[in-house]
Amino acid sequence: MENLLRPIYQERASQPNTLGVLLYEKLHDQSPVTDNFDVILLIVVREAEEDWYVKHYEFEQKTAAMHIVDEQLLNEWIDKSGYRKAIDWLINGKVIFDRNEYMANLKETLHQFPEKNRKLKKAVEFAKLIRAYRECKDLYNSKHYMDANSLMVRSLHYLARVTVLEKGFHPEITVWNQVKKIDPEVYKLYEELMESEESLEKKISLMLLASDFAIHSRAEHGAEHLLNLMKEKEEPWSFGELKVHPELQAYTLDLSILLEYLVERKIIKTVLVETKGQSIFHRQYVLK
Results as ranks from 00 to 15, higher is better:
N141T: 12
Y102N: 06
F169D: 14
H157S: 15
R131F: 06
I173F: 13
Y140S: 01
E166W: 00
S142F: 08
K181C: 10
R99P: 10
V179D: 00
E115M: 10
N149C: 09
I182P: 03
N177C: 04
N105G: 04
V162S: 03
Y187G: 02
I182Q: 04
L189E: 05
A132Y: 08
T109H: 10
E172H: 12
Y158G: 03
V162W: 00
Q178M: 05
R154P: 02
K119I: 01
K181I: 12
S142L: 11
L129D: 07
P114S: 06
K143D: 13
D98E: 07
V124A: 02
D183N: 15
K181E: 15
E108F: 12
K121Q: 11
A127Y: 07
Y145D: 04
V162F: 03
Q112I: 15
K143N: 13
R131P: 00
C136L: 08
D98P: 06
Y187C: 02
K180I: 07
A127D: 07
W176S: 01
M146N: 13
D98A: 04
F113V: 06
E191K: 14
E185W: 09
Q178F: 00
Q178K: 02
L165T: 02
Y187I: 04
V153S: 08
F169I: 07
D147N: 13
T163R: 05
V164K: 01
S150R: 12
R131Y: 10
E166F: 03
N100K: 15
K181F: 11
E191V: 11
E108W: 11
R134Q: 10
K137D: 09
C136Y: 02
D98L: 04
L139F: 06
P171M: 02
K116P: 01
D98G: 06
H111E: 14
L156P: 00
I182L: 14
R154I: 11
E101H: 14
Y187T: 01
P184Y: 10
E185K: 15
F113K: 09
N100H: 15
I173Y: 14
R161I: 09
E108T: 14
L151M: 15
S142K: 13
K116H: 08
N141Y: 14
P171E: 00
V164S: 00
Q178R: 03
E185S: 14
C136S: 13
H144E: 15
L189T: 03
H111W: 09
A104I: 09
S142I: 04
V162A: 04
P171G: 03
Y102D: 05
A160H: 02
K143M: 11
C136N: 09
E166G: 04
D98W: 06
A148E: 02
Y190N: 12
I130C: 05
M103A: 08
T163G: 07
P171L: 02
K180P: 02
Y190H: 12
V153P: 01
R154A: 12
